[in-house]
Design a protein around this nucleic acid. Structure first.
Lengths: 127, 127
DNA sequence: ATTTGTGCAAATCGTTTGCATCTGA
DNA sequence: TCAGATGCAAACGATTTGCACAAAT
């Protein structure tokens, strides 16, 4: 998998990949993955976690999901889908593709193409 | 306007409001507004800009638009609409409401309500 | 007079970087 | 061997905060 995208399968990258893809459809921040690795006595530096996540994302193994103007989550599900953001728990959750349909699509400015479509529905506990 | 939402109309807030709403449908970062104010010999500290923008947003006078995991823009158009993000220019642009329709809406987890729907179409120059 | 806002500088948070050291092919 | 990866600590950029001072009501 790593070789396919041109990344050396180093100790750290292999270990992190295992963590990431152990369960499916995970949404992790760098910090979360760091703690997970550390808890399993897997010595990796936070810097390497950041590097690795960014590389994986660039190579299409992960999808980057920015929340607000501050946190970045990485989604192991790279297929085309959308997200709930649970405000009181700071948690990302997938929305099944079938549950949302964007009907009419906006027309783009001339000479531009779509790089990505991010739809996030922010939800909160009813009051 | 400020009194209506319970904010004291201080020098700075009035001045910033004037800048913000001088033209319609603006998308500004704190830094951008700071420079604009400074250029017009309007002495305001950056901290006050941040405070003011956040208060305005909390009071519904502005809409917060987070880009990626880092930049925060403030949109003077608080009505329900969506955005293009022009990747090579780091620029936000409104999408007319009529141009997008979200057909089928996802069903929310029990006990939750929608806080906000953020749809951002990231576009880039065709290659 | 009392409450609220402002400015400054320092603090915080998530993230990136420089560089010496290691490691995989 | 040697390009590329790692770890550490320091650097970063955007944003927030503590606190003394100033301005609104």
């Amino acid at each position: 998998m790593l070789r396919n995208v041109g990344l050396r399968p180093t100790r750290q990258r292999v270990a992190l990949a295992k963590l990431l893809y152990a369960h499916s459809d995970r949404h992790l921040t760098a910090e979360m993955l760091y703690m997970e690795a550390t808890n399993q006595n897997l010595p990796v530096s936070l810097a390497t976690i950041y590097n690795t996540l960014n590389q994986f994302a660039r190579m299409g193994l992960l999808r980057e999901v920015g929340v607000d103007g501050s946190l970045t989550y990485f989604d192991t599900n790279t297929s085309n889908h959308h997200h709930f953001f649970v405000e009181d728990k700071n948690e990302i959750r997938d929305i099944p593709t079938t549950d949302i349909v964007i009907g009419k699509m906006a027309e783009l400015p001339d000479g531009y193409e779509i790089a990505r479509v991010d739809l996030m529905i922010r939800i909160r506990r009813k009051r």
